[in-house]
């Protein structure tokens, strides 16, 4: 278990180094950073002085080393556009994105798993067929379209929920949360449904197919033959056996929820990292893009690590150090 964790950690570090290399390359070779920073009237001498000051004349490896050391301290330089440290900008936007992602992931799990269990157990019921049709919509409609549809229905026509922004937020230290105010919560509803719908349908279909497989196994038959309660058979014995693939997929999906919140944030003008990233792309604000890339990679690596550790919790067969007696 310890050896496994260490191996995993080394792999994670390797992945982060590769990603750092890519962001660094982006930094260095997509346009000349000096051009981005100075005005048209700057003299060549001033440019050269700036190059020297920024360390752009040092050997590439030295520069890369510096980039990594700084990145490890969350220092990604200054945004060209906003003239502010990138880490401050991202830090300000991070809570919005993480809250949105968290709520949509919870929505996807809380709705997706029960629907999957139900459709797996009652394959031919009318409700199952309805769920499956809905899930087809969730999988096939593009996110921005669902968002616009929801806005049209609930904001424009019914006027129940706001169509953009985070509503009122409360600051807890540097973290601003919309989870504690009514308007903040209301503002969360539509974006998180939009963002989580695809994941929800994916999880539902996955749980369904796993359930169909598990309820045919001998141990479920034996559990029935022992007269265990139907509830316990379905939700304890069967569901737990479907969890390993569900954890894998959910982990990956939580990563993509955070990474691809861009579209939802744009549709709902959600002041998160995705929106910031999109603005930075439009303005060729490379420090922000590089930092965003690193951050997303980091989140993926962390989530994967958690997923691997969760396997051990769920499946005793993987706890290799307690080998067969």
């Amino acid at each position: 278990m310890l050896a496994f964790s260490i191996r995993r950690l080394l792999q994670a570090i390797l992945v982060m180094l590769v990603v750092a290399l890519i962001s660094f390359t982006l930094f260095r070779f997509v346009g000349d950073p000096v051009n981005q920073m100075v005005g048209v009237e700057t003299t060549p001498e001033q440019r050269e002085a700036l190059r020297e000051r920024l360390g752009l004349n040092d050997p590439i490896m030295t520069q890369f080393g510096r980039f990594i050391v700084k990145a490890a301290q969350f220092d990604f330089g200054t945004s060209y556009q906003f003239r502010q440290p990138v880490s401050d900008l991202i830090g300000k936007r991070l809570p919005a994105t993480l809250e949105l992602s968290l709520v949509s992931a919870i929505f996807a799990l809380l709705v997706g798993i029960p629907m999957g269990v139900y459709t797996g157990l009652h394959r031919d019921s009318v409700l199952s067929k309805l769920f499956l049709s809905i899930s087809l919509i969730g999988i096939s409609l593009p996110t921005f379209f669902i968002g616009i549809l929801l806005i049209f229905l609930f904001s424009v026509t019914l006027q129940w929920l706001p169509s953009f922004g985070r509503g009122d937020t409360v600051a807890i230290g540097w973290w601003t949360t919309g989870l504690l105010t009514v308007s903040g919560l209301k503002a969360l509803v539509l974006p998180s449904i939009t963002l989580g719908l695809f994941q929800m349908t994916l999880i539902m279909r996955l749980v369904r197919s796993e359930m169909l497989e598990v309820i045919r196994t001998d141990y479920i038959k034996f559990a029935r033959a022992r007269g265990l309660r139907q509830r316990s058979i379905n939700f304890r014995h069967a569901l737990k056996n479907t969890l390993v693939p569900v954890i894998t997929i959910t982990g990956l999906q939580v990563g993509s929820i955070i990474a691809f919140a861009i579209i939802t944030e744009t549709v709902f003008q959600w002041p998160g990292m995705g929106l910031l990233f999109l603005q930075s792309v439009q303005n060729v604000d490379i420090p922000i893009m590089a930092a965003y890339l690193m951050l997303i990679a980091f989140l993926f690596v962390v989530i994967n690590l958690i997923v691997d550790l969760l396997y051990f919790v769920v499946d005793p067969r993987l706890r290799a150090d307690r080998a067969a007696l």
Partner: peptide, 22 residues
């Protein structure tokens, strides 16, 4: 269900798959 296990028990063919692995 109340009869199964309580009044009539059943043993299946394959012990390797009859027990819930988790």
């Amino acid at each position: 269900r109340k009869i199964r296990g309580k009044r009539i028990g059943m043993i299946f063919q394959d012990p390797l798959t009859s027990l819930n692995p988790l």
